[in-house]
Design a protein around this nucleic acid. Structure first.
Lengths: 149, 149
DNA sequence: CTGTATCCGACTAGATACTG
DNA sequence: CAGTATCTAGTCGGATACAG
């Protein structure tokens, strides 16, 4: 869903979003066309921020700007490599800004852009839903597991 | 992010959500505790519906109940195997209901549950954000790529 | 401190073939 | 039609080492 090492080095493949198998036409009946483009948008968004760390980084930076190591300490479990990669891609998508101060030792500050902060709002909707329905899902899951003996 | 074949067969590992490396305490200062539990909820939700197909299935079933093959034809590019697996997990989480009619040939109808339909609302928020800001992201990306020569 | 490169195990998901 | 099992290439992401 996210990024390959190769793509990260090249900062993603420009042709990534084009589905080579998609004929561009649709023979199934109704919702298809709207659904197809909408589906691409959803998948596209999820490809960007639906990975393991992006939303967490955005939420951290939503409060205030932070330095690299500060972020790494705040986000439990993220590796050095993944933080770099996540930040680089968020920066590339205009969701996060990077400011480097040419000092010794080097200092780099990351902050959410307006775009990044606007993304936090709909994300909060999801978070609320998750909080409210977490128990329901767990219960459904337990019931399902119990039912299959 | 989603499910392993092994987990799909066993329908997921009950211990999946416990992070074995998480000591349960936190030595970084402020937002940590709230952020840690919130982070788990976000990641948890994304693990369930943030995969390649779940949201698309939920959106299809949000309109009306559908049969297996009907779904497969409506969702462009989904494989037989992935549709089965996605439906099974959505059913397990109580987001989708499955009704089997013992006829020949067999007929099985899938429908969104109330829980599944309630999830569609916050998801719509994300879809709208994605639609509204898709161009901004693409532009930012192009500019970033152009800037690195 | 910040960033990059390499290695490598683990997981994802498509293709395919087979059952009732 | 609906579902399961197996094989496999491609991808994700952690550990590690190293450079500015």
């Amino acid at each position: 869903m996210t990024i390959t090492d190769a793509a990260a080095r090249r900062l993603d493949d420009p042709a990534e979003l084009a589905d080579p198998a998609d004929p561009g036409v649709c023979d199934a009946p109704p919702v298809c066309d709207a659904e197809t483009s909408e589906a691409r948008i959803v998948r596209d968004l999820l490809s960007r921020v639906g990975d393991k760390w992006s939303l967490l980084v955005i939420r951290m930076l939503h409060e205030h700007a932070m330095r690299f190591t500060e972020l790494q300490r705040s986000i439990d479990g993220i590796s050095h490599r993944m933080l770099t990669q996540t930040l680089r891609n968020l920066e590339r998508d205009g969701l996060v800004s990077r400011t480097s101060y040419p000092e010794i030792p080097p200092r780099v500050e990351y902050a959410a852009t307006d775009l990044g902060r606007s993304l936090a709002l709909p994300v909060l909707g999801l978070v609320e839903w998750a909080s409210a329905n977490h128990a329901s899902i767990t219960n459904a899951r337990d019931a399902f597991d119990a039912a299959r003996d």
